[in-house]
Amino acid sequence: MDLFTLVSLILIIAMLIAAVVAAEIKDLLSAAIAMGIVSLIVSILFYILQAPDVAITEASIGAGLSLAIMIFAIKHTERWEK
């Protein structure tokens, strides 16, 4: 098992844990933040897969702007899922 495989597997496991948290948690704000963590880890995976253009885009949009837009939407509506 080389370094590429090891780092990728650690990041993928963390990403899947964050995805399951985003699916199951009742607090929508926490779910949105977990979604931001998924985007951030995916951007690191893009960088490992030799796609720096996509990594920059995903880090600034997926983890920055989309999280902010989702938090604004939650602020306009309600926070807890029934």
Partner: peptide
């Protein structure tokens, strides 16, 4: 690396 889309973001 980069370009119009990440710069705009």
């Amino acid at each position: 690396p980069g370009g119009g889309f990440p710069g705009g973001a």
